[in-house]
Amino acid sequence: MKIQTVKCCRSSIFFLFLLLSFSLFAQEEGTWRQASPSSQAYHEYRLKNTIPPYGLVKIKALIAQIKDADDDSKSPLNQKAYLALPLNEKFTYHMIHAESYSQNCDVVPPIIDEDKKIFGILPDAFNESSWSERQANFLKSQKDAVVSLIKESVNRSKRVGLNYKTALVEMNATETIPFLIELYNRDHKDFDILTVLMLFMKNNEYKPFMISTSFVKLYGDKSDAQSFINYNKANEELIISRAIAFYNGRK
């Protein structure tokens, strides 16, 4: 029985090796379509986080110490050092360092025409990492202060980074809807702001949105992390008008 188990394991490992080799070969041979330069540029734009300035040199040094001590840059800062940070430096820490690690081995092909799509879900702000329970609790318990710091930072940089968008969704900061719409209307460039508006409506079960065709396409049974609707003026205006109606109807 042990011999059969070993053979089975070896067969599974060999199969995985072949599958990985095939995936790498497909990429090398150009089986996947290459995204256009504008699509690739927008992809990079979507993934860009905003780096807060509050105690940045100090926080980077603390994060470097974590890596030196644990050989794992995703480990949490020890509680004593964490509690000693003032609130705005905690904010910087959370915005540039996610404490939880989750490996993702999936090979994702390039997104074609990414610059012409409005997605239902935001990209991962920290690649293969995410905020820990301690970090999520900080964002929610200090929501007013965090929103204020985000607005202050965005007003300086004139854009809201992916980490900030992710934080706003995590905190369910629906009070920022007018601010986000004003920011979006400056250049109509960052479609992920529209994604945040839709996530607010979805997470708060706003009925006019929940029964819409867009909701089914983005969040229905057949949806996935790359589900999208096409960017056009009609979809843009519909998302914004629904978000305004949702905001005005909040209790």
Rank of each mutant, 00 (worst) to 15 (best):
V154T: 13
D192C: 01
L238R: 10
L87P: 01
V196E: 05
Y93G: 03
A69D: 11
Q142A: 08
S38G: 14
A98T: 00
A225P: 04
N163I: 06
L168A: 07
Y184K: 08
I66D: 04
E182V: 03
S129P: 15
S38H: 13
E114M: 09
N104S: 07
A35I: 00
G30S: 00
F246E: 04
I51M: 03
Q65G: 02
S100R: 14
Y206M: 13
K233L: 11
F179H: 01
D71L: 11
S100G: 12
N235S: 06
R242I: 01
K67L: 05
A41Y: 12
I13S: 07
L20K: 08
C8V: 13
K151N: 04
Y45E: 13
F228K: 07
K233M: 14
V169W: 09
I240P: 02
N155E: 09
E29T: 08
Y45H: 09
K165I: 00
K140L: 06
V169P: 05
F246Y: 14
I66Y: 01
I59C: 02
E237G: 10
L83N: 13
D68W: 01
E114W: 07
K140T: 06
A167Y: 08
N230V: 07
K58W: 03
Q103Y: 14
R10Y: 15
I118S: 14
G249F: 10
A173K: 07
Y101W: 14
L218P: 15
L139D: 03
